Amino acid sequence: MSPFTGSATRTPDWRHLRLAVDDGVATVTLARPDKLNALTFGAYADLRDLLAELSRDKSVRALVLGGEGRGFCSGGDVEEIIGATLAMDTAQLLDFNRMTGQVVRAVRECPFPVIAAV
């Protein structure tokens, strides 16, 4: 990967998750314990963007992905994603599927191990 990514520096604050980096280990915590860390459109977008940032950071050697509270992640939020997709047209569904696919692809292509703290 070229060192000249044209990218901005790492985002310091995330709306839908928490990030801590200590001694080369990035810990990402889904932060919706009241909903068992169910994913929203914003959470997917944050994960997509964060994974891109971390993958360019040569100091990160591993990623631990976990959830706050008693659940790791209960999937897509029934009200904020599942219900919303029922009202989407084909183009909107395609955009959403592309975004979720980008998250999955980013995890698979990380240049470091990704560990699920379930």
Rank of each mutant, 00 (worst) to 15 (best):
G76W: 15
A52S: 08
R70T: 14
G69D: 06
A43P: 07
R56P: 01
L51F: 12
F72S: 05
E68P: 03
G75N: 12
D57H: 00
A43S: 15
T40A: 12
G42M: 09
A62D: 09
D57N: 02
R70S: 13
F72G: 04
G42Y: 09
G69N: 11
E53V: 01
S59C: 04
S74R: 13
L63W: 08
E53C: 02
E53M: 01
D46R: 11
F72E: 08
R61C: 03
G76T: 15
A52D: 04
G76M: 15
L50M: 08
F41V: 06
L50C: 03
A43D: 07
E68H: 12
G42S: 09
L51V: 02
V64S: 09
L63H: 07
L54Y: 04
G71S: 15
D49R: 10
L65A: 04
L47A: 08
R70L: 14
R70E: 15
S55M: 01
V60K: 00
K58A: 13
R70A: 13
L65Y: 04
E53D: 05
S55A: 13
L54A: 03
Y44T: 07
L47W: 05
G71I: 03
A45D: 06
A62I: 07
G67F: 07
V64Y: 07
R61G: 05
F72V: 07
L63E: 06
E53H: 03
G71T: 10
R48G: 02
G66K: 10
S59V: 09
R70G: 14
G66W: 02
D46L: 10
A45R: 11
D57G: 00
S59H: 10
V64D: 09
T40D: 10
A45M: 04
R48C: 08
T40W: 11
A62F: 10
G67K: 08
F72C: 06
S74M: 12
L51R: 01
L63S: 06
G66M: 04
V60D: 02
L47Y: 05
G71H: 13
S59M: 08
V60E: 03
A43F: 11
G75K: 14
E68F: 05
K58Y: 02
